[in-house]
C-alpha cells in the first residue's frame, strides 16, 4: 500500500494519506506533509513528544500538522519516523516523532498554513484515507 499521493490543486498542494487504522493515517499524513517541506534524507537523531487535543478527527489533523510546521519553522525539525496513538474517545493524539533539527535552510516549499479546505478522514473498503490541502 502506498503511504500517500499528491493530487492536482490550482493554488496549493493537496495530498491523500492512507492507513490500515487511524494511527497509521495520521503517521502517513505527517510523512506526506514532511515530504512537501523536504525531499532529502532525514536523520533520526532527535526525538520529540507532544500531545494534540481536538473535538473531532479533522481538528486533530489540522492541529497535528500545524505542530509539525511550527517545529520546522522554529527549530528546523523534520520527521523521519513517527508514532501516533489516538485516544479511545478520539479527542487526543499522543505523538512521538524522530528526526533531525536545523534543516530550515534546506526546505523545498514554504508552507504558510494547514487548511480545512476539502479535508476528510474516512474509512472505505477496509482502509482509512485522509485528504489535506496546505496553503503554500
Amino acid at each position: 500500500m502506498k503511504k500517500f499521493v499528491f493530487l492536482e490543486h490550482t493554488a496549493d498542494i493537496k495530498f491523500r494519506a492512507f492507513g490500515k487504522n487511524l494511527n497509521e493515517v495520521f503517521e502517513n499524513s505527517a510523512l506526506a506533509f514532511t515530504s512537501v517541506l523536504h525531499d532529502g534524507k532525514i536523520k533520526k537523531d532527535v526525538n520529540k513528544k507532544f500531545l494534540i487535543k481536538g473535538n473531532d478527527l479533522e481538528a486533530l489533523m489540522f492541529r497535528f500538522l500545524e505542530e509539525i510546521l511550527f517545529l520546522f519553522e522554529t527549530e528546523g525539525f523534520l520527521i523521519s519516523n513517527i508514532k501516533v496513538k489516538l485516544s479511545d474517545d478520539k479527542k487526543n493524539l499522543k505523538v512521538e516523532a524522530f528526526g533531525e533539527e536545523k534543516l530550515a535552510g534546506r526546505a523545498r516549499h514554504y508552507i504558510k498554513a494547514v487548511t480545512y479546505n476539502d479535508m476528510f478522514i474516512k474509512k472505505s473498503a477496509g482502509r482509512w484515507t485522509a485528504q489535506v490541502v496546505i496553503d503554500v
Partner: peptide, 16 residues
C-alpha cells in the same frame, strides 16, 4: 509565519 500562526490559533480557539 507570525500572521499565519495568529490565524491558525484563533481558528482553533473559535472552533473550541
Amino acid at each position: 509565519g507570525l500572521g499565519h500562526q495568529v490565524a491558525s490559533d484563533y481558528i482553533k480557539e473559535m472552533e473550541d
